[in-house]
Design a protein around this nucleic acid. Structure first.
Lengths: 325, 325
DNA sequence: AGCAGGAGTGCATTCGAATGCAATCACCAA
DNA sequence: TTGGTGATTGCATTCGAATGCACTCCTGCT
């Protein structure tokens, strides 16, 4: 309401508006004495610079849009929190958008983003290929996390998935598992696809079959029946949420993990590490990944012409009781 | 970079900038024909109105700040997601801030918020009493969720906690528990305090002692030792995260829940409902609460002089295996 | 004393869109 | 044909802050 502007401060300090502006911006030259007076006046009036007005001139808002695809998993919330922390310490504000996994939401979200002049975008969502042009048109740097642009136009920070899945699968085989079932994710999902590929590769003849999943706990529970009827001796789930669901579902059927069946997950989410589940899973270093993504994004923001390489991280297998490798 | 302005569109459509502005704002009067031409030109140039520039005039940004106090619990992420969804469908963008439970962060966050001209604020964080003036100075409506302003200056949507805790405590006593331990939360936390008060009240002589906690899973695990040494026959935890921690901690000591000790939580978080924990807990209708908070906030935003009542919701006890009431 | 150099400052303009007011236009009735 | 009416439209200004440019002083040096 009674919003205080730089003119008000200027009047009270007996200087020009320019002087006020200069004391509040990084590279303004002001004499120490006037700076002090301006700050005093600002303090007294409770002045805060209007960053949106500033952005009209500078072209920078200090806001970064985060797009996350909130499958109902336990994994994305952790990513969001880390994003918030990382952006915060980079001095950026986070404008958060969820797509709820619906690809059509991406378009809506992108137009909204365009209207808000964010400095950059971090996305953990898949884009339809024809959105590429739209993103380019936004004219804002985009950083992908655990997604990859097939044409490598946009930099991506990812965690190696295929080899990891293959390695985990291999370990199962070497540990003597002979009938391994896969619980997969949505076909169009990047990580799901890569994990699946790796797993298939690593299982070899121990591969039994694939059950279609959707990343949710409930779907894990629901799959339990099918799993037992196929007499699998291990289930590789493409994420942790489903793995916890499978464990609970099997439990209800009176099937013991790991005595009767082994179960593995993928992600390294908090829920999976809870003592009662103690999943064997592939732990992604999300914190490092998110930090790196933010770091690289900030580089482009500060120096618009640089290109940035992205990065591929390696996670590691955590062995829990659910599959005592 | 090549940002398209209303002037560009105007030029291409052969009209004035005003016409463009009017076709893109709610209450602008434009002839259907010119509107069509403008839209066509806008489409061709990929024009998107700059909402921040607009906000200079209208005084509204369409952004709402959300402040959450991210204790590491499993509960706040769910709140964040619901907030996002609710704000989204109210047509607001969410600017998200975490305080990490540090009260000093609140001040930083509030000044940032002041600089970004948000239309309103939704907070699940406790404010130090002397921040009241600061918030008032922001001149922006504030809605509290599960926090209460002692002076009732700011509207709050909360879930009834004290009676609920008392009721739950009572049920434990009636079910024959005689030595009930409390695992409390931070003293300055609103919900923790109210839940504790209620529990004390409801337990009567079955109250054994209070162990200080901090809402985290780890702290629940750590408390297990103390719990057994005090020979409690039930533990009331002030939130679900700690309850799951307690269960796992006891498990490691070979103590069975519920055979040897009963455990209850508070929140109704997803993790607590997982089959392996199956907590008896007090489920808060967070979704309704968040929706109501957003609804009321939007009312004030649209009609700045209205006051809004807040609301108190009732949750309900969900009985799980962790304390088979 | 005279002058070059530099630091501080203010003026005026700019960013992109909204809006009050005045001008224009089409159309209808007399 | 003329005046009136309402609907559109454009002009000019405004929001709050940043910044190029020109101007004023104050130093310090010769």
């Amino acid at each position: 309401m009674a919003s205080v502007t730089s003119y008000d401060v200027a009047a009270r300090a007996g200087v020009s508006q320019s002087a006020v502006s200069r004391t509040f911006s990084k590279n303004g030259k002001v004499a120490a004495a006037t700076k002090a007076r301006v700050l005093k006046a600002a303090e007294e009036l409770g002045y805060q610079p209007n960053l949106l007005a500033r952005s009209l001139i500078t072209g920078k808002t200090g806001m970064v849009a985060a797009i996350v695809s909130q499958t109902s998993g336990r994994y994305y919330p952790e990513v969001v929190q880390m994003l918030a922390t990382a952006l915060e310490s980079a001095g950026k504000k986070m404008l958060l958008f969820y797509t709820d996994g619906r690809i059509d939401r991406v378009e809506e979200v992108l137009t909204e983003i365009g209207r808000y002049q964010v400095d950059g975008i971090i996305a953990t969502t898949q884009f339809a290929p024809d959105r590429r042009e739209m993103i380019r048109a936004l004219g804002r740097p985009l950083m992908l996390v655990n997604r990859v642009d097939p044409k490598h136009e946009f930099p991506a920070v990812i965690c190696e998935q295929t080899e990891a899945a293959s390695g985990l699968a291999n370990s199962l085989v070497e540990a003597g598992r002979k009938r391994v079932l896969l619980l997969s994710g949505p076909k169009d999902n990047f990580v799901a696809r890569h994990r699946l590929m790796g797993a298939l590769d690593g299982l070899g003849s121990a591969y039994l079959d694939t059950v279609k999943g959707d990343f949710t706990y409930d779907c894990g529970v629901a799959a339990a029946h099918q799993i037992t009827s196929m007499k699998a001796d291990a289930v590789m789930c493409i994420n942790d949420s489903m793995a916890t669901g499978v464990i609970d579902g099997l439990d209800r059927l009176g099937v013991q993990v790991p005595q009767d069946i082994w179960v593995t997950g993928f992600d390294g989410s908090f829920a999976g590490s809870l003592g009662r589940y103690d999943l064997t899973t592939y732990v992604q270093p999300i914190e490092s990944m998110v930090n790196e993504a933010v770091r690289q994004l900030c580089l482009i923001i500060d120096e618009p012409d640089t290109t940035v390489p992205g990065q591929t991280f390696q996670g590691q297998v955590r062995v829990g009781r659910s599959a005592p490798l």
